[in-house]
Simulated scan of single mutants.
Amino acid sequence: MPKIGAKKVRQSVGKTSFPPSLLVQLLEPGQWENFIEDCCRTELKYVLVQRLGGAGDAGRDVEARYTQTLMADQWDLFQAKRYQTAVGEGDLYPELAKVFHHLAQKTYPTPKNYYICAPKNTTPMLHDLIAKPIEMKQRFLKAWTDGKMGISVSKFPLSPATATVVNNFDFGKIKEYPVKDLLELHERDKTKHEKLFGVEATRDASVIPNLPTAVEQNYLEQILKVYAEDGSVALTMAEALLSDSYSEHLQSCRAEFYSADGLQRFSRDIYPGEFDNFKVAVYNGVRRVASSPTYKTGMSRMNSVLDFSMGLKIEDSPLAKRLLPADLPGTCHHLVNEKKIKWVK
């Protein structure tokens, strides 16, 4: 007697040979700012995210607000530093001088956090200083007073008003955002993550329930009609599942159905609506075969259509490169489930 049990089919579709942690180093400065903006957009805590990097940005590459109105301590400032090396004091301090200049000018209110975002993170020296905000403030003020560490005192003079802003500013707000954490944020948007890095997401395992569910009702009823016609006797689902003649065939059809169901679930996050388009393409591809009047039995019609479907080339679908062998016949079962195809006329 055939053994009946839940099956979990592991499915893995290829991944890129180069990890995002390496590819992110190749982004151009503008791409890096876009990357940071996309990372922020995955954070539900922000109600408005805007990339401002470029001329006139006033030191804000990306502005992420907690409220629609730009208010003090209700927004985060992201500084996107795309360098070939780790960011050090000489890279950060000129940017901080620009920010404090604009805070003194009231260009914008004080941010809640000032995030340093760099592909190679920060130098060990700056990393340690970030953890010592009081010492960092002292070093920064001295560098500004002395015109050191790349700060242009002619462009951004340390006026008494600006010095007051610096002294009142909590340097604990200045934080490093490790690139690994940024990549985890970016990965939440699977569509953009794949587009930028060419990462092919892994499909979740297809779990086939021990017993048929209500979702499978229509296509399984059609299969039972095929068996009834083929064996000249009607079978219940329980009888078919235990049948020496039909059990393996039935479970294979269910595995195909759930393989396509896995493709559908997979596509929802990355390619919304594309599985529906894929079903239309499959239907158009097998329709002539399925409607042929030459078939004498439902079994011959079903087997012919399922076999024919496996040879379909649907290359214009973004799902094409994600297909597993059972997806195409499984999609036919979905079409039967939607009553667009019948095995027994």
Rank of each mutant, 00 (worst) to 15 (best):
N210E: 11
A131W: 09
V280S: 15
S259E: 00
L158Q: 09
R139C: 04
G231P: 02
H249F: 12
G53D: 10
G273I: 05
Y93V: 11
K342F: 08
K81N: 04
L141G: 11
Y227P: 00
S232M: 08
N167G: 03
K173N: 10
S247A: 14
K173V: 05
V62A: 01
K321W: 01
P178R: 13
K81E: 03
K279L: 15
T164M: 14
M299Q: 04
S206V: 10
A238D: 02
L242V: 07
G330L: 03
Y108C: 12
A205Q: 05
T123S: 13
F35Y: 12
C39A: 11
I4V: 07
F197R: 09
A260Q: 04
F275I: 08
Q105A: 14
I270V: 15
Q264C: 14
E63F: 08
T297R: 02
G147W: 11
M1P: 02
Y93G: 04
M1Q: 08
T122M: 11
G5V: 00
H102G: 07
S21H: 15
R188G: 08
I208F: 02
S159D: 10
R41H: 05
P178I: 10
E239T: 10
H334S: 10
P212V: 03
A201Q: 14
D244H: 06
P157K: 13
G273M: 01
Q50H: 07
D307M: 09
Q11G: 05
A6H: 08
I4W: 00
F266L: 04
F275Y: 14
H333S: 10
K120Y: 12
Y108W: 01
K340P: 09
M71L: 04
L328V: 04
F78D: 00
R10M: 02
G147K: 09
F278H: 04
V62I: 13
A201H: 06
V9T: 00
L312F: 12
G53S: 13
E187K: 15
T67E: 00
G311L: 04
S245G: 09
P111C: 01
S232D: 08
S21K: 15
A118N: 03
E338W: 14
Y66R: 06
L183Q: 12
V166W: 06
E274S: 01
L324N: 08
K225R: 10
L241K: 02
D91W: 04
S152K: 15
Q217T: 15
P209F: 01
L319N: 05
P178E: 06
N167E: 15
A143L: 06
A58G: 11
L323D: 14
E43S: 12
L185G: 08
L158F: 13
I270W: 08
